[in-house]
């Protein structure tokens, strides 16, 4: 049983970290602000959730898992909100999305 949990959580952790790295690469490579925002979203949602899930599996049922769930909720609420606010603010501030026909 333990081995199964370990394997599953390892897969989750590795997968999560892969998403984090991919998001990071996107953050660097993407051409304009809004696409970069999109890349960052990958880190904050899929990457974060997978890592947290992996840890949750390790923690079992305890105070730790409660806290992990709290963190999960927190990230789930604040992450998109922040991204939303950022996008809106940027649009307000005059950052224009880069269209294909721009280049």
């Amino acid at each position: 049983m333990n081995v199964v949990i370990d394997i599953v959580s390892a897969v989750c952790l590795i997968g999560g970290s892969a998403f984090v790295v991919i998001g990071g690469i996107g953050l660097i490579r993407m051409p304009d602000f809004f696409t970069r925002l999109h890349a960052a979203g990958v880190c904050e949602t899929l990457g974060a959730w997978l890592v947290l899930l992996g840890l949750l599996l390790q923690a079992g049922w305890s105070m730790v898992s409660v806290k992990l769930i709290m963190i999960f909720l927190m990230l789930a609420i604040t992450g998109p909100t922040a991204t939303h606010a950022l996008a809106k603010s940027a649009l307000h501030g005059g950052v224009k999305p880069k269209h294909l026909d721009d280049n």
Binding site: I77, T78, T81, H84, A85, K88
Partner: peptide, 9 residues
Amino acid sequence: EHHIVLRVV
């Protein structure tokens, strides 16, 4: 004032 999402959150 426009950030309804923010206010709710």
